[in-house]
Write a protein that binds this DNA or RNA. Structure first.
Lengths: 201, 201
DNA sequence: ATGATAGATGACCGTACGGTCAAGAAAATC
DNA sequence: GATTTTCTTGACCGTACGGTCATCTATCAT
């Protein structure tokens, strides 16, 4: 059973870096197999289709995120608004280190895939949406705690959280168009200026 | 010459809708030719490569924008901050009408292409970057006029402009992940809350 | 020891990809 | 009217795509 899971995860590992650094359509299964040292027939033993591989890749990236610096950023021990700063910082350093290693800014895999496939594959779109929704609630929790503490004035926490997530994705997109993670450094902190007021009753 | 330019623009027209509604890699030249009623050899008479077609498509979209509702939005006769409202509105109604016709939210072609190709093709990336830069300056002008008028407090107009553009792209991305243009309506207006202060001397 | 199951192999399927080319038709130039 | 240029045609190139399959080899429980 161990060898099996190892093959499977070698496939996923090979796919992760490629989907991230190029695109879904531009990476072929043959290439992934070659890189993972796996036969194509073996690939289809583990994944019914390319889309299923993408699902697994998204899951792994989401895990990396949730257990990596996102967990650190949204540490309940930190003051709520500092968590947001921390997340921006972490995203900046992550993209920067990717560029140092890889020579290019690769951006956010979830954003990349969303814009590429979400008009063509509702199942992948739903999966990506779920991840964004999860991220939104992290922001929302932080905002609500900040309001409860009196650190910030009351606001529509859910919409503001969504706006912040959108802003983060947008900044990463723009930075990718410049191939320059420094844009994250310059624009990132402004995320805290975003506010959507509560609807008047 | 007329027939020739007509063929060329039929090719571009067929490519525009397809690149917008799917992706660059997912649309083949054969399909574009079939739809434009053109032979493949004829295609390569007008475009040296698929990338050159993409360049032309980007140019046409940029023209549509610049001469369409962006020109209306950034009308110097409008109060500067209202121009930004107008742009958000226009983006919302545009995406909404696309969805009504097409059944899906297609998002921003420039954002879509940026995330798909900018790690793979520096020439396309440069082209897209130039369009974002142009858009940034529209925001910047509006902001500077608003500051001059005293409508808003002084700020770093260039960085704030860039932040606003990023936010717009991010909101469109998130809306696409939900296949719901209404998100633009809910989140869009918050663009005016974004602020990046001037660096202290 | 045996039979079932899980995994690996590599040839193979049809189709589509971006791109090329020689030849012919149509238009513009002289 | 002849020549040159622009445009069109349709067959063709090699390669890669996602996916299938029969066969073989481990691994496992009984």
């Amino acid at each position: 059973m161990n060898i099996a899971t190892d093959t499977r995860s070698r496939i996923i590992a090979a796919a992760k870096t490629r989907f991230h650094s190029r695109s879904y359509a531009n990476v072929g299964i043959q290439e992934i197999c070659d890189n993972a040292g796996v036969q194509k027939g073996s690939f289809y033993h583990f994944f019914p289709s390319k889309r299923d591989l993408a699902m697994a890749v998204i899951d792994e990236f989401a895990d990396d995120w949730a257990n990596g610096f996102v967990a650190e950023a949204f540490d309940p021990a930190l003051p709520p608004m500092e968590r947001i700063d921390y997340l921006i910082d972490a995203a900046y350093f992550w993209q920067k280190s990717i560029k140092e290693v890889h020579g290019r800014m690769l951006g956010c895999i979830f954003g990349n895939l969303t814009l590429e496939v979400s008009t063509q594959d509702d199942i992948l779109r739903a999966k990506l949406l779920a991840i964004f929704t999860q991220a939104k609630f992290r922001f929302k929790d932080a905002l609500e705690q900040a309001v409860a503490e009196g650190t910030i004035a009351p606001l529509d926490s859910e919409l503001t959280a969504e706006a912040m997530l959108a802003y983060l994705e947008g900044v990463i997109l723009l930075a990718k168009s410049q191939n320059d993670p420094e844009l994250l450094y310059r624009l990132g902190p402004a995320i805290k200026t975003l506010r959507i007021e509560l609807k008047r009753a």
